[in-house]
Amino acid sequence: MTPTPKESPVMTAMTTAPAAPTASGAALETFSYGGGWQSTAALVLAARGELPFRIFLFANVGNDSEHPATLRYITEHAAPFAAAHGIALHQLARTRRDGSTETLYGRLTKPGSRSLPIPVRMSNGAPGTRSCTADFKIRVIGRWLKAHGATAEHPATVGIGISVDEIHRANNRRCEPHERIVYPLLDLGIRRADCPRIIRSAGLPVPPKSSCWFCPFHRLTTWAEMRRSEPELFERACALEATLNARRADLGKDAVWLTRHAAPLADVVSTDDVLPLDFGDGACDSGWCFT
């Protein structure tokens, strides 16, 4: 594997289209697009004029990191739909000072790296400290917002796709100084179960659940489905887990896992329909992912 350049503390955001101009003095209003049910429903509502957002920001943690189905959906459906309705859907990436792109998978697999930015499960099943959402979502979008005029004195509005049934994920305390977080689906009383109907009403297929393909917050049913329908991707997840543990063994540290069951992924996720009980919520609590 080719070593990646040393990370710079400076981040820039790459867009797939020029930034949409705003009226002079108008507050910047954007929506964090995750590629899943809630944010795609919000895109449809914005196209109808039922939400005020005309700028949607997709922070891509890496073409090698986002689930391939999510990337296909955005390319084949969400981006064309947005363009047809005059909505700017920007795709952003974390980049270094030299202009190269850093991906989450690249950081995890970089030779010699000790970084564990994802919430791997520790020996007791609890998730470890993570920085993936902050580094590859929040700060990337924040960099774009500040480049387009957002400041602590004049913060940008950022819509997050949390629905009524997931209201516990709404948390204004995590707001950055340059942004004002809002939850428009809560204001409209929209539940996650309402989203497929909204999406289909616009002639769009319902997107898959969005997340990194190796996210430790996956339910066991998600892992099992991946093993059945995407065996090569499942094997890559198993290989990633093994790589992380080989590195930790060299450092004299305890093993970490992609599930809460403290065992290799391939052993936990069987090929039959019998799985261990899994009471996880299947999503991180930030609202920046799994929406």
Rank of each mutant, 00 (worst) to 15 (best):
A59H: 06
A88S: 10
S115E: 15
L116H: 05
S123Q: 13
T30P: 02
C195T: 11
Y73S: 03
A17E: 13
A239S: 04
Y183G: 05
T243N: 13
V182I: 14
L108T: 02
S270C: 14
A156C: 08
H178D: 12
K110D: 14
S39A: 00
P18C: 04
F136C: 10
G142M: 01
R180N: 12
M1Q: 11
G280E: 04
T291K: 14
F214T: 01
I162D: 00
P21G: 06
V61A: 10
M226A: 09
R197L: 13
V268Y: 06
V158F: 03
F234D: 02
W288A: 05
A283G: 08
A263I: 01
H67F: 06
A134T: 12
G161K: 00
L258M: 02
E29T: 12
E7L: 14
Q38Y: 09
G106V: 03
R174H: 12
D272Y: 03
A156P: 11
I141N: 12
I55L: 12
D250R: 14
Y183C: 05
L204M: 06
I160C: 03
E153I: 10
L92D: 13
R236C: 10
H168E: 15
V274K: 09
L188K: 12
D267F: 12
S270R: 15
R107D: 14
S24H: 15
S113I: 08
V274I: 10
A83I: 02
I87M: 02
E241I: 00
L145T: 07
I138R: 07
G99E: 02
A93W: 13
A41Y: 08
R191E: 07
L92W: 04
N171Q: 09
D250K: 15
P205L: 02
R247A: 00
T12N: 14
P155S: 07
R228E: 13
L251M: 09
F136P: 00
I87H: 02
G287A: 03
L71Q: 06
P52C: 06
K253I: 10
L108V: 01
K6W: 11
N124W: 06
P119S: 01
P231H: 10
G125D: 00
G149K: 04
A93M: 13
R174V: 09
H67G: 00
D281C: 15
R94F: 06
T133P: 09
P205Q: 10
A88W: 01
E232A: 11
I162L: 08
V182M: 09
N60T: 00
R54L: 04
T259E: 06
C195G: 04
D187V: 10
N172E: 15
R219Q: 11
D135G: 05
R121M: 03
D250F: 13
Q38F: 11
V182A: 11
N60L: 06
F31D: 04
I167S: 15
D135V: 01
S65W: 01
S131C: 11
T15H: 09
R169S: 05
N171M: 09
P155D: 08
L104M: 12
R72M: 07
D98R: 06
A20E: 13
W223Y: 11
C132E: 02
M11C: 14
E232Y: 00
R200P: 12
C284I: 00
T222P: 07
I162M: 12
A134N: 14
A20N: 07
L92T: 07
N63C: 01
C195H: 01
D272W: 04
L116V: 03
L43R: 06
L233A: 06
A17Y: 08
N172R: 15
R114T: 14
Q91G: 12
L28A: 05
